[in-house]
């Protein structure tokens, strides 16, 4: 990572080595970090571990993609991790209460949709600043969860009879053909979001809202609807990530998904390193999520736990933003 920050501020020749460093230095830095892990723990890049990381990153990515869409419009959604948490909890409770499996997928997604719509109304139509509104929403959902679980009792699926949980846990634990179903899901979500954010009018309108909301308004764009849609997408994706997480782990710990908020933010901000202008992008977020996944996995392999993950992720957010600021100055 440090490579790119060493480059001088004025490089006249854009095809020079320095120019390459500016554009790709951050990515080289990430690869270097991963290389160090590999050197210290060769098991880091074993097929089994890599697949494990992909599954974990997939969940982070699904959540971070929604966040990326909102943040590209200069909003923010702090409620995504809590939405994911609650969605997973709802899925687990439905299965424990012996509801059909399809409901364990559909109801949490519906919940995510409702949270997204409420957020959209508050931020886009009432006009509450997104930081405040989504933070408030996060705590309202948390209260709901705590009350529903009688003070954060975990909802355990893996001790239930296999027949009851098999179909639900398939998503997170089994393979679809040669690849883990969860990785397939993540890929499909990535492609769908990629297509939405590249080839649809929504993407164009969102870009206009994010860079000049007044001009977008005067050009006849329904800016409130577009801004609000971002929150709706973020809510649904967060719920999907929450269901996938519970399906992978077989247990729904109330508040267990909260640390994913940090991961999602770090993924989205690290993604800005992939862009020349330091903008957030869908492929950038994928890259960021993969890096975050490998990073936390590597730290775990080295026996370094949550504290390092927090500190490093926070540090990487700041580093990515600082590099972005330097890029824009150029």
């Amino acid at each position: 990572m440090s490579v790119s920050s060493n480059r001088p501020k004025s490089s006249t020749n854009s095809i020079s080595v320095l120019g390459l460093l500016r554009d790709y230095g951050a990515i080289l830095g990430m690869i270097a970090v991963l290389g160090i892990f590999w050197y210290l723990k060769p098991a880091f890049l074993s097929a089994a571990n890599v697949e494990n990381v992909f599954r974990q990153s997939g969940i982070v990515m699904i959540m971070a993609l929604g966040l990326t869409i909102v943040m590209k419009m200069r909003g923010v959604d702090l409620s995504i991790a809590q939405t994911a948490d609650a969605a997973g909890l709802i899925a687990a409770m439905l299965i424990i209460a012996k509801y059909p499996i399809w409901m364990a997928f559909a109801i949490p997604l519906l919940f995510g949709l409702v949270v997204g719509i409420v957020n959209a109304v508050l931020m886009a139509y009432v006009g509450i600043p997104a930081i405040i509104g989504t933070l408030g929403m996060m705590f309202i959902i948390r209260s709901g969860e705590l009350m529903a679980t009688n003070g954060a009792e975990p909802q355990i699926l893996f001790t239930l009879p296999r027949s009851l949980t098999r179909d639900f846990l398939w998503l997170g634990q089994k393979d679809l053909g040669p690849v883990a179903a969860l990785i397939v899901l993540a890929l499909v979500v990535f492609l769908v979001v990629f297509v939405i954010m590249r080839f649809t009018p929504f993407a164009r309108y969102a870009k206009a809202v994010g860079s000049n909301v007044r001009a977008a308004f005067l050009a006849g764009i329904d800016i409130r609807m577009i801004f609000g849609l971002g929150f709706v997408i973020a809510g649904v994706l967060a719920a999907l990530a929450g269901v996938a997480l519970v399906s992978r782990t077989g247990i729904a710990m109330p508040r267990g998904a909260e640390p994913f908020l940090l991961d999602a933010f770090a993924a989205a901000y690290l993604g800005t390193l992939a862009s020349r202008q330091g903008e957030m992008s869908i492929p950038g977020t994928l890259m960021g999520a993969l890096f975050i996944g490998f990073l936390s996995n590597g730290l775990t392999l080295l026996g370094l736990g949550a504290p390092y993950r927090y500190a490093l992720n926070g540090g990487f957010i700041l580093l990515a933003m600082a590099i972005g600021a330097l890029k824009r100055k150029n």
Partner: peptide, 26 residues
């Protein structure tokens, strides 16, 4: 972070928040 790098206050303090949480746990 806010004044020198021109980061939005939200992002800068978000990063510092996570660093502080990590430092606490360490």
């Amino acid at each position: 972070l806010v004044l020198i790098f021109g980061m939005p206050a939200f992002v800068a303090t978000l990063g510092v928040m996570f660093v502080a949480m990590g430092a606490t746990l360490l």
